[in-house]
């Protein structure tokens, strides 16, 4: 009942995606923003929503240690529960914890074969079998295409969905489709791309690449005080 409440109240559902997973099987999604705007917070909320639906999330971080990633989840879940006045959050959190697995790598030590090896370790022993992967901190530049191709192959083969954070720089300009340059080397691999932009005191979530969802869509914002996604009253043009 509690889980259902939280799932139904999740504003991400209001973005118009008919599929709760947002991505198709084997699909790639990206959250693009400048450093410190809230890419990880947004992806952790996507992960929490997936976990609330009983699906498993593998969080791969190339930036933060396990403790810090765990803290992101705990803090955002607590804020989510407070915002929607959900009681007994401890029990709910305990139920959700086994649905998450955190793997951290040093940026220079990360490779797809290595990730695949680790994943096989836990899958073959029946420890954890993810439905969704979050890759936080992968560097997107001209050299990242082979890594993304290998990841795409792995994700498609195992029927997973993968989300990435993409760090963009102030001086980066968008191309004709609105996609910023760092994503360009591999933009055909991505089904969904969300851009986080600061407008005044708010952080707006804009969809750069959405697949075929109907419009008008509500504009979502990331509350800078809580880092939670909430719906803006205005409607996207």
């Amino acid at each position: 009942m509690l889980k259902k409440d939280l799932i139904l109240r999740n504003p991400l559902r209001q973005m118009g995606y008919e599929n709760d997973d947002i991505l198709p099987e084997g699909g790639f999604g990206a959250v693009l923003a400048r450093a410190g705007v809230g890419k990880t917070a947004l992806l952790v909320q996507l992960a929490l929503n997936t976990m609330l639906r009983g699906k498993k999330v593998l969080h791969v971080s190339l930036l933060d240690p396990v403790n810090k990633v765990d803290l992101w989840y705990r803090e955002l879940f607590r804020r989510l529960a407070v915002q929607y006045q959900i009681g007994q959050i401890r029990t709910l959190w305990e139920d959700m914890l086994p649905l998450r697995f955190i793997m951290t790598f040093k940026v220079e030590g990360f490779s797809v074969p290595r990730l695949q090896e680790r994943l096989n370790d836990i899958m073959e022993q029946g420890i954890f079998s993810p439905d969704m992967i979050i890759v936080d901190g992968l560097i997107f530049d001209d050299t990242s295409k082979p890594v993304l191709d290998a990841l795409k192959e792995m994700v498609e083969k195992q029927g997973l969905r993968a989300w990435f954070t993409v760090n963009i720089h102030r001086q980066v300009k968008a191309d004709a489709d609105g996609l910023p340059k760092p994503l360009l080397p591999a933009d055909e691999l991505f089904d969904v791309a969300l851009l986080l932009v600061t407008e005044g005191n708010e952080m707006h979530i804009r969809d750069l690449k959405t697949g075929d969802i109907p419009s008008p869509r509500p504009v979502l914002i990331l509350d800078p005080a809580t880092m939670l996604i909430k719906e803006n009253v205005a409607v996207a043009s």
Binding site: H59, V66, D70, L97, F101, T104, K106, Q125, I127
Partner: peptide, 17 residues
């Protein structure tokens, strides 16, 4: 990880160093 799993352990994460 196998040892922990056999002991009803819940693995929170693995850090590659």
């Amino acid at each position: 990880m196998g040892l922990l799993n056999q002991r009803r352990g819940m693995i929170v994460g693995a850090q590659d160093e």
